[in-house]
């Protein structure tokens, strides 16, 4: 059987496929250059042969060790996890799902209703609290989120909770005053529990394009993001920008969201992700290979 040749046209197609997954032009160009080199040195001329090389390269880029995608959980002590991100990406929902997961592992969980701004945000977290059977610490709408965090830490300590999950209001990264507010929230956590927050998770919507890079940069700078939750991967968007974020900022993806239900949260697995990213690609390469 004659396979599709790895030529200029092949790489152009690959480029389009990666761009359509939102990987981002710069990262795509780098990747393609890399692959071209690889193809040359390994003397690869068939599309079939280059497939595993592509998958391997991307998976490697995304996940260097298994450890790094694990959440940093404290043993026999309170673990504090702060959620940050722009509006509507899935912060509150992810907290609900994660609370459910921890509860299933027998952990005592408390959630902090740190979004005191958006209409219905506190109630939304409360519904999740009821749904998964976890306490929600809240104050009135409009109150100071840092004060809510203070209360929540106190309450989590007195309840001898294992995990405190802190919700925050969505904010666009170019709003300086809102980013300052977030830093203040974080400072309160650190003041009450010296090495808290143990994780700062930036929630990214897989549907987001290149702006996610700017989100990762700015939230990263102001809150020291330790990991990414990539949500809404149950749609047709691939969230390829996490490749660029990993490439340029070295922030690992830790969790992925795959729906609106409480069980729709998974640990991130690079191989699986790359496979999903390339499910269509591999098919196309195969089809192209058989042309």
């Amino acid at each position: 059987k004659d396979y599709r040749k790895v030529d200029e046209e092949f790489f152009e197609e690959l480029e389009e496929i990666l761009i359509s997954a939102d990987v981002g032009v710069n990262t795509v160009m780098d990747l393609i250059d890399d692959l071209k080199d690889e193809a040359r040195t390994r003397n690869i001329s068939d599309a079939k042969e280059i497939q595993p090389v592509i998958s391997e390269k991307l998976a490697e880029l995304l996940q260097k060790t298994d450890e790094e995608t694990k959440l940093n959980m404290q043993e026999n002590e309170l673990t504090v996890i702060l959620f940050v991100g722009v509006n509507g990406v899935g912060k509150t929902t992810t907290i609900g799902k994660l609370a459910h997961k921890f509860k299933g592992e027998g952990k005592r969980v408390v959630m902090a209703a740190g979004d005191t701004f958006r209409a219905g945000a506190i109630e939304q977290l409360e519904v999740w609290g009821e749904r998964v059977g976890v306490d929600v610490i809240k104050q009135q709408a409009g109150s100071d989120p840092a004060a809510v965090m203070y209360d929540a830490i106190r309450s989590a300590k007195s309840k001898k909770a294992d995990v405190l999950l802190c919700d925050t209001a969505g904010r666009l990264q170019n709003k300086v005053n809102l980013m300052n507010e977030l830093e203040k929230v974080k400072r309160v956590l650190t003041r009450e529990v010296p090495d808290a927050p143990h994780e700062v998770l930036l929630v990214l919507d897989a549907t987001t394009g290149q702006n996610a890079m700017s989100q990762a940069k700015t939230f990263g700078k102001s809150t020291d993001v330790s990991g990414i939750v990539l949500t809404k991967l149950d749609g047709t968007a691939k969230g390829g920008i996490v490749l660029a974020i990993r490439h340029e900022l070295d922030i690992p993806v830790k969790l992925v969201g795959l729906g609106e239900g409480m069980d729709d949260l998974q640990e991130f697995e690079a191989d699986q992700y790359v496979h999903g990213l390339f499910a269509d690609v591999l098919e196309e390469v195969e089809e192209a290979a058989e042309e």
Partner: peptide
């Protein structure tokens, strides 16, 4: 009717 507190969210906006 699906998203937690979606109705409450709109009602709050209505109140505002």
């Amino acid at each position: 009717i699906y998203r937690p507190a979606a109705i409450k969210q709109l009602e709050t906006l209505g109140k505002q």
